[in-house]
Design a binder for these strands. Structure first.
Length: 430
RNA sequence: UCCUCGGUAGCUCAACGGCAGAGCGGGUGGCUGUUAACCACUAGGCUGUAGGUUCGAGUCCUACCCGAGGAGCCA
């Protein structure tokens, strides 16, 4: 058997080959059946004629969708066929005749599709999104590799709270009592910079937020970077180079997939440094001029983010938020102690926050006060204080949400399609 | 936790308080180049659950369950 991937048809024109895959669609016209075969590398049209197939023809013309088959035939260049090539079948083996497949050719609702996510992943659109996800993650790793970062795999069971204690999933941990699923790898990355300088992690994070919106999952993937001797300004420059790199490379590599997703890539092509920088003070001013009744001191809401991103045609940083709305580890502003040296990066086209980052507080006394002000237990942060005792240096870092970034790149309405098996407030199956 | 919208055939949706329907999918038959193929016929229903109003409820009222979008919170 001359086994062949559909992707490689172009190299096998005229040859007789065998493909192995699934019946993605079927049409028939009397004595000719057209089978659309998907094999994981691509899809092609296979032609089965009554004369060539003999007794098997009757079974072929009523083969249920998603039946698994091998098809042997000649690869022929054919402009009428989707893909430009087709397979003229001389033999076909049915590996399994599928039961009636629940996903049809017309539209379905989200509840139905999410309940059969294990089957939905076979759809052309979902296949395209998973390919873009693969490319995006690959370029994330490539960027860090090229820029001298070392991968540090941070723990998922944690005892120190990274962000907000109310959003933790707790797990019974033998005789040690409760541990929590990681909300961030940041605190552990901070420990690693003292040996490795620039480090990053990429993995799942968990937040027990009772959020039901197009931007939220309870389990999502985050890539975080942490850099010794990086101050606030260096941090933002790195982030804009990073985002530009991953967006440009992913868009270039996944042109076919993005076309299938009907994503207009012109706005993505403009994602080049420098990004806009707006201070929190300026943001409040802009918002109040645009009809928002936001008060200085409160965090920006979803509508506020939309107003600001609509003013710019590429991502925009909002810098230096009030200390009281941000996490305890952010460095206090040198001139204005009510602010911290942080920035959120908002993606354009209404996609909103994709990065949160900051310079970290390297002064142990200010850090202790911040932990107490946030109602956290300093005893649990003993190891974290050590990092401020043994050669503390200025350092900064950031975290980028893979699903939100992918949702933006693919132009999707909801992050649930960007991860193979989404975990949401009311959904943990399949 | 709160606000808004929804739940009718396997799926997507119609139906003025008055006989519960269509498209897709399934079944049967037809068609030699189809492109979500097409044409004909056909099966398929405790209208989310429990009460109530009414001569009569898918439709109006109450409670609950489930889902979607959003707020808060966040990547």
């Amino acid at each position: 058997m001359n086994a062949c991937l559909i992707r490689d048809f172009i190299k096998h024109a005229g040859e007789t080959v065998t493909i192995r895959g699934w019946v993605a669609n079927r049409r028939s016209s009397g004595k000719v059946s057209f089978l659309i075969i998907r094999d994981g590398s691509g899809t092609c049209q296979a032609i089965a004629e009554r004369e060539a197939m003999g007794d098997l023809y009757e079974e072929i013309r009523r083969l249920p969708l998603e039946s698994s088959v091998t098809v042997t035939g000649q690869v022929v260049e054919e402009p009428r066929s989707p893909g430009g090539y087709e397979l003229h079948a001389t033999g076909l083996t049915i590996l399994q005749k599928s039961e009636e497949f629940p996903i049809g050719k017309k539209e379905h609702g989200p509840d139905f599709l999410l309940g059969i996510r294990h089957l939905w992943l076979r759809s052309p659109r979902q296949i395209a999104i998973m390919r873009v996800r693969d490319a995006l993650v690959r370029y994330v790793r490539e960027f860090f590799h090229r820029n001298g970062f070392t991968l540090i795999d941070t723990p998922i069971f944690t005892t120190t709270v990274g962000e907000d204690s109310s959003n933790l999933f707790s797990v019974d941990y033998f005789d040690l009592g409760k541990t929590y699923l990681s909300q961030t790898g940041q605190l552990y990355l901070e420990a690693a910079i003292f040996g490795l300088g620039k480090v990053y992690c990429l993995g799942p994070t968990f937040r027990a937020e009772r959020s039901k919106t197009r931007r939220h999952l309870t389990e999502f993937w985050m890539v975080e970077g942490e850099m010794a001797f990086f101050e606030h300004r260096d941090n933002l420059e790195l982030q804009e180079n990073f985002v530009s790199f991953i967006v440009q490379n992913t868009v270039r590599e996944c042109a076919d997939e993005l076309r299938k997703l009907e994503r207009d890539i012109e706005p993505l092509k403009r994602v080049e440094p420098p990004f806009h920088r707006v201070s929190y003070d300026e943001a409040i001013e802009i918002l109040r001029k645009n009809g928002s009744d936001i008060e200085w001191g409160s965090d920006l809401g979803g509508d506020d983010e939309t107003i600001i991103t609509n003013l710019y045609d590429k991502p925009v940083f909002i810098e230096c938020y009030p200390k009281k709305v941000k996490a305890f580890y952010m460095k206090q502003h040198p001139e204005r102690p009510e602010l911290v040296m942080c920035a959120d990066l908002l993606a354009p086209e209404g996609y909103g926050e994709i990065i949160g980052g900051s310079q970290r507080e390297d002064d142990p006394e200010i850090l202790l006060k911040a932990i107490l002000d946030n109602g956290l237990d300093p005893e649990r942060y003993g190891w974290y204080f050590d990092l401020r005792k043994y050669g503390s240096v200025p350092h900064s870092g950031f975290g980028l949400g893979i699903e939100r970034t992918l949702s933006w790149i693919c132009g999707l309405k909801h992050v649930r399609e960007t991860i193979p098996f989404p975990r949401m407030l009311y959904r943990a199956y399949p």
